[in-house]
C-alpha cells in the first residue's frame, strides 16, 4: 500500500503582536498555500499518493487546491490526492491538536507541520509515535528549521514509504513539561519562560523587565526568541541530554547583561543572574511565586502564590524527520536515480 502522509498547516500562525512591537514578517496566505503545494510536489516525487490535511477556514487549502488545479490545466502537475479530516473547525490551536491525534490514529507515515513553534507544539503533543517534519511559517520560530519545502516533502516521502530506514531518518527530541498543582502537563518544545506579569494579554513576550526565569530544552545562538538568551550564554544542542535554566532580572540590576534577539528585529538587554544545566527527568520548582508562564514565547498560563509549579525536561519525547540525513542517505544509496533503459 502506498504511504499516506498528514499535513497540518496553520493558516493563522505568524499574525501576532510581534508585527507591532518587533519587526516580524507576515507570511501571506497565498505564500503559505504555495509552500503546501511545494511540499506536495516533493511528496509525490517520492511515491506518496495520498495526503490527508487538516481542514481550516483560513483559505489556505482553497488556495493550494486552486494552485494545483491551475497546474493540472497546464498539464505539468504531479501531486498526491488530497483529502481532509472530518472535524469541526474552530480556528484555534485546538484544531492542530485534534488533527494530529486523528492522523496518528489513521496511521499516516508522517505528519508535516506548517507553522511556528506554537503549531509544532500542538502537533507534537498529540502525534504519539508518528514522526513529524516541520516547515517554518511562523515568526518567532526556534523549533522548525528553515528549508525549501519541496525537499522536506522529498524526505518525508522517503521515510513514510520505508525507502529510508527509521534509524537513519528519524531523530528524537526533548521537550519541557510544565505542571501546575500536579495537573495535566503542558509542553514546550524550546523554552519555558516565567514572567512576573500575571496576565496573558496579547501573549507574546517583550516587556523584558518582567522576565524572571527561563528553561530551555536546547539553546542555539543562531536562533531568535527567548531561547536565544540561553543560546548566547551556553549553547545546548538538540541532541544533548540536558537543557539549561537561567535566572533573569532587569538589566539595570543584573550582574550580566546579554543583548538578545528576543523577537525578529528586536534586540534587548536581558539581565542574567545565574544559570546552570537542566538535567533530564528531574522536576524543578521555580522560585517565582506568581506570574505567567510562556511556552515557546507565548504567555499561556498564569499562576499565583498558592499554586505549585513544576518544570521537567523530558528526553525522547517525540521524533522528527532528519531531512539532511534522509537526503544524504537517499543520494548515497541511489534512491533518487534510475537508469534510462532507452539509452542502454
Amino acid at each position: 500500500m502506498p504511504p499516506k502522509v498528514g499535513v497540518i498547516a496553520n493558516p493563522i500562525s505568524g499574525r501576532d503582536i510581534r508585527r507591532v512591537i518587533a519587526k516580524a514578517n507576515s507570511l501571506q496566505i497565498a505564500d503559505r498555500a504555495n509552500i503546501v503545494v511545494r511540499l506536495l510536489a516533493g511528496l509525490a516525487a517520492c511515491g506518496v499518493e495520498d495526503v490527508v490535511m487538516m481542514p481550516e477556514r483560513g483559505g489556505l487549502a482553497g488556495h493550494a487546491l486552486r494552485q494545483m488545479a491551475q497546474s493540472a490545466v497546464r498539464g505539468n502537475a504531479r501531486f498526491p490526492s488530497v483529502s481532509f479530516i472530518e472535524m469541526p473547525v474552530t480556528g484555534t490551536a485546538a484544531d492542530s491538536r485534534i488533527a494530529a491525534k486523528a492522523m496518528s490514529a489513521m496511521d499516516v507515515g508522517a505528519i508535516i507541520v506548517l507553522g511556528g513553534d506554537g503549531t509544532h507544539r500542538a502537533v507534537a503533543a498529540e502525534c504519539g509515535a508518528t514522526p513529524i517534519a516541520g516547515v517554518s511559517t511562523g515568526t518567532n520560530n526556534a523549533f522548525p528549521e528553515i528549508r525549501e519545502p519541496t525537499i522536506t516533502g522529498y524526505a518525508t516521502g522517503l521515510v513514510a514509504s520505508g525507502a529510508v530506514p527509521k534509524e537513519i531518518g528519524l531523530k528524537p527530541n526533548k521537550w519541557l513539561e510544565v505542571r501546575i498543582d500536579g495537573g495535566p502537563a503542558e509542553i514546550a518544545l524550546v523554552d519555558v519562560a516565567l514572567v512576573s506579569q500575571q496576565n496573558l494579554g496579547a501573549r507574546a513576550l517583550w516587556r523584558t523587565e518582567t522576565f524572571r526565569e527561563l528553561y530551555v530544552a536546547f539553546a542555539d545562538p543562531q536562533l531568535i526568541g527567548m531561547s536565544a538568551i540561553a543560546g548566547l550564554i551556553e549553547p545546548v544542542g538538540r541532541d544533548e541530554r540536558h537543557g539549561l535554566m537561567l535566572r533573569l532580572a532587569p538589566a539595570s540590576v543584573a550582574p550580566l547583561v546579554v543583548q538578545a534577539p528576543i523577537a525578529p528585529g528586536l534586540v534587548e538587554p536581558i539581565g542574567v543572574e545565574q544559570w546552570r544545566r537542566l538535567p533530564a527527568g528531574q522536576p524543578i520548582a521555580p522560585d517565582l511565586a506568581a506570574g505567567s508562564i510562556a511556552l515557546d514565547g507565548e504567555r499561556e498560563l498564569t499562576f499565583h502564590s498558592r499554586q505549585n509549579v513544576s518544570i521537567r525536561l523530558v528526553e525522547n519525547a517525540f521524533d522528527t524527520i532528519d531531512v539532511a540525513a534522509v537526503m544524504r542517505f537517499a543520494a548515497t544509496k541511489g534512491l533518487l536515480r534510475e537508469r534510462n533503459k532507452a539509452c542502454v
Partner: peptide
C-alpha cells in the same frame, strides 16, 4: 485572501490578529 492581515502586508503596514 481570507487573511485581512495579508492586506496590511500588501501596504507595508503591520497587521495583527
Amino acid at each position: 485572501v481570507d487573511s485581512y492581515v495579508d492586506r496590511a502586508s500588501g501596504f507595508g503596514m503591520p497587521g495583527v490578529t
